[in-house]
């Protein structure tokens, strides 16, 4: 079980996965917007167990965005 963390403090711009979805390591899971730059967040391969944030939410550096199994 791994956590998908936000690379830096910003706003969740896009959530491209759903709970239960099977993901590979190339899938773009989230986009966190910070400093007018889009940061794409990737994860390890597995199944999305939980998504802990919503679109538009402000997140902190290293905040857990999702849990993958």
């Amino acid at each position: 079980m791994t956590e998908v963390l936000s690379p830096m403090a910003g706003r969740v711009q896009e959530i491209n996965v759903k709970v239960g979805q099977m993901i590979t390591e190339d899938d773009e899971l989230f986009i966190v917007e910070a400093l007018k730059m889009e940061n794409v967040v990737y994860g390890d391969p597995g199944v999305v167990k939980e998504i802990l944030v919503t679109v538009g939410q402000e997140v902190e550096e290293d905040q857990v965005l999702a849990i993958i199994e």
Partner: peptide, 20 residues
């Protein structure tokens, strides 16, 4: 300049994040 660094790194390795 931090954004430039991050941008150039991501271009080579999209999973890398050195922005912090």
């Amino acid at each position: 300049t931090a954004k430039i660094a991050q941008h150039e790194v991501v271009k080579v390795n999209k999973r890398a994040s050195i922005i912090q």
